[in-house]
Design a protein around this nucleic acid. Structure first.
Length: 373
DNA sequence: AAGTCGTGGTA
DNA sequence: TTACCAAGACT
């Protein structure tokens, strides 16, 4: 075992200190890993238990830009409903969108279904290499590496936001993140051990999630603090360095909740592509509408006795939205392109959170589970 | 290749 | 409250 040398430069560390970092990290992972529904614990792994590629893939797609806590319930629901990739392939796309509703980034659900269909066609087996996985819809550089390492024991460089934070701190990388990514990847490739590459990847992510956190990292508990350059600077929180981002514009519009006498609500499906693609909504105006507060029921998709029912706000990734909400009781058939959703069906529709807010503002409780009559 | 894509939690 | 940002992918 090479002696620890905290004063080595980053380049020398990368060349000669990699084995030590990996082994210290794996030892820490054995003792402190998180128990997660899709994970095979290191003790079971040592007995030869391997993760089901289907479950690894499912969890990795759900975890893209999404917190572990938010994913847990969705993951359990999905694998209970569809235990195998063949089962998911056999499911109607609408059911998948409904089950995904609330988790966000809805193109992931469409790609999940498309990917399941392709894998089922190839006999239900996922490709076991990074390159093969990378060709499937919804699987990018990170997810391909993660599945290859965790499910197939491949020596792949898994680089996510956690790993970027850990590595930029280990080596005090001053280059802003977007530009530093190639350098980070190269460093990770040198760090990945020959044995247990999947556990190494998960260990790096657990470290980033529980010790090497964005704010107030717990350096005193870190298994690789002796390898870390940033801790010597006294301000590891400074890394990763990011470019300043521009602020979110505010968009405004109006939404129209049409209710039938039996409590049914008029809905329609959004276009497959773009914002909230393929999801369900109530009729709305465009979301760039006049910002002078003069929105009126004149903009309604059809005439009715529209009454103001309040206002809601919602924040998307790159803009904020304010919707004025109108409510009316109407009779008759659904207009072209629209459909009635019965009171007890509404909670099961593919409604994004912003649309649940809209409906709740007009009819409190409407999106909660209703008793079937 | 920079912009588009949700939602919830945290400090 | 605002701002950040979380197991990124796609165009």
């Amino acid at each position: 075992m090479a002696p620890l040398n905290q004063t080595r430069k980053a380049s020398q560390q990368a060349a000669s200190g990699d084995i030590g970092i990996a082994s210290r990290l794996l030892a820490w992972y054995d003792a402190h890993h998180r128990d997660l529904p899709w994970r095979v614990a290191p003790r079971a792994f040592a007995r030869g238990v391997r993760a089901d590629p289907y479950r690894v893939w499912m969890s990795e797609v759900m975890l893209q830009q999404t917190t572990v806590e938010a994913v847990k319930a969705y993951f359990r629901n999905f694998v209970e409903k569809w235990p195998t990739v063949e089962a998911l392939a056999a499911a109607p796309a609408e059911d998948v969108m409904k089950a995904w509703a609330g988790l966000g980034y809805y193109s992931r659900a469409r790609n999940l279904k498309a990917c399941a269909d392709l894998v089922a066609l190839r006999g239900g087996r996922f490709p076991d290499t990074e390159a093969g996985l990378r060709e499937l819809p919804g699987i990018g550089a990170y997810t391909a590496a993660a599945i290859a390492a965790i499910a197939f024991d491949r020596r792949a460089a898994v680089v996510d936001g956690n790993v970027e934070r850990v590595v930029t701190r280990l080596y005090s990388i001053e280059t802003p993140l977007s530009e530093a990514k190639p350098q980070i990847r190269a460093l990770v490739e040198k760090l990945v051990p020959r044995t247990r590459p999947g556990d190494f990847a998960q260990a790096m992510m657990d470290l980033g999630a529980t010790i090497c956190t964005p704010k107030r990292p717990r350096c005193m508990l870190c298994p690789v603090r002796g390898d870390c350059s940033a801790i010597l600077t006294g301000d590891p929180e400074r890394f990763p360095v990011r470019l300043p981002k521009d602020h979110k514009p505010l968009r405004k519009g109006a939404a129209f909740v049409a209710e039938r006498d039996d409590g049914a609500i008029l809905l329609r499906k959004r276009p497959e592509r773009g914002l909230l693609g393929g999801m369900t909504e109530v009729p709305t105006t465009g979301w760039t509408a006049r910002t002078d507060g003069a929105t009126t029921a004149d903009a309604a998709p059809f005439p009715a006795d529209w009454r103001r029912a309040g206002q809601i706000g919602h924040v998307f990734t790159h803009f904020a939205l304010e919707l004025e909400i109108f409510h009316a009781h109407i009779k008759g058939d659904a207009p072209a392109g629209h459909f009635w959703s019965l009171a007890h069906e509404i909670s099961g529709e593919a409604l994004p959170i912003v649309m649940k807010k809209v409906i709740e503002a007009a009819i409190p409780g409407a999106t909660k589970k209703q008793p079937t009559r």
